[in-house]
């Protein structure tokens, strides 16, 4: 009996080590390739260099700035539209709100390519809109909105917002005062978790963006695809390094926020 138990454990450890290697090794290779003078010769022979990073900055800095701008704009829209809506969805469970909740979650179930195609068919002929980064923003808002709404709703449910609000109402607070004084301050962990998620996903969004972008509105992942196809491996790696540097702090913050507020920030299964 003990033997079968330890066999299972050993097998698990072996698989875990292999899976970790599978997940980490390519990332490490990528980072090292980005600072290696010549990847073909290896980092020991050819030495460490920041030439490629400089080259990426020269070629692609505008994509990085555009990604940041789109991410922040996406955040603003999801905050302004998503947080109040999450409150209404939680507060008034009914057929109408249930339908709205289903609809805003649909962009998670439908491949980004399909949504992008739909947006192009509907608005592609409006030249100024099509050519602006607002077009990309639209796709990002659709894609990230459910994460903000759900993150806020999870916290609303955990804090029993309905009763808290009744408490405030019993003390004379109007709907607006209740929302401002009781709901918003207590839902902050959900807003924070949702915001980190939205920014992270927006920075990394490719499926929609590839269809929606124009040569003048390239975001970081679009530039990455471009570099993977046409640049030498060292430049592609250095560019990927920029992406890691932007996204990993956000991921670390997300983990810290989740640990700080317990399970309130939503189930792990609903990520991405």
């Amino acid at each position: 009996m003990q033997r079968s138990g330890s066999f299972i454990l050993v097998a698990q450890i072996v698989v875990t080590v292999l899976v970790c290697a599978f997940l980490f090794v390519p990332a490490v290779l990528s980072v090292s390739a980005g600072v290696t003078a010549n990847y073909f010769q290896g980092v020991w022979k050819s030495g460490v260099t920041f030439v490629w990073i400089g080259e990426v900055w020269r070629l692609y800095a505008d994509t990085i700035f555009l990604s940041l701008e789109v991410a922040l704009a996406t955040l603003v829209v999801t905050l302004v539209a998503g947080v109040p809506a999450a409150y209404v969805l939680h507060r008034h469970p009914g057929r109408l709100t249930r339908a709205l909740e289903e609809i805003i979650t649909l962009p998670l179930a439908i491949p980004g390519l399909a949504i992008a195609l739909a947006l192009i068919l509907a608005y592609g002929t409006y030249g100024d809109f099509r050519k602006s980064s607002l077009f990309i923003l639209t796709g990002h808002v659709l894609y990230t909105m459910p994460f903000m709404v759900r993150s806020v709703m999870a916290v609303l449910a955990a804090m029993d917002a309905v009763t808290l609000e009744e408490g405030a109402a019993s003390l004379g607070a109007s709907p607006w005062q209740r929302f401002r004084d009781v709901v918003l301050p207590n839902v902050r962990p959900g807003i924070l978790a949702g915001a980190l998620m939205v920014v992270t996903l927006s920075i990394g969004e490719f499926n929609l963006t590839w269809m929606l972008h124009t040569p003048l509105t390239k975001t970081l992942p679009v530039g990455l695809a471009d570099s993977y196809a046409s640049m030498r491996l060292e430049i592609a790696s250095a560019y990927t390094l920029f992406f890691f540097v932007m996204v990993i702090p956000l991921l670390v913050l997300m983990q810290a926020a989740a640990m700080f507020s317990g399970a309130a920030s939503g189930s792990a299964g609903s990520r991405r």
């Binding site: 997940l23 090794v25 499926n207 990927t240 670390v252």
Partner: peptide
């Protein structure tokens, strides 16, 4: 565990690049 969850945030293109490196 935190490190293992990082690939969640990688776009498909980056994942493709990881496969190329591998």
């Amino acid at each position: 565990i935190a490190l293992m969850t990082f690939p969640l945030a990688f776009p498909g293109v980056v994942v493709g690049f990881m496969v190329i490196l591998l």
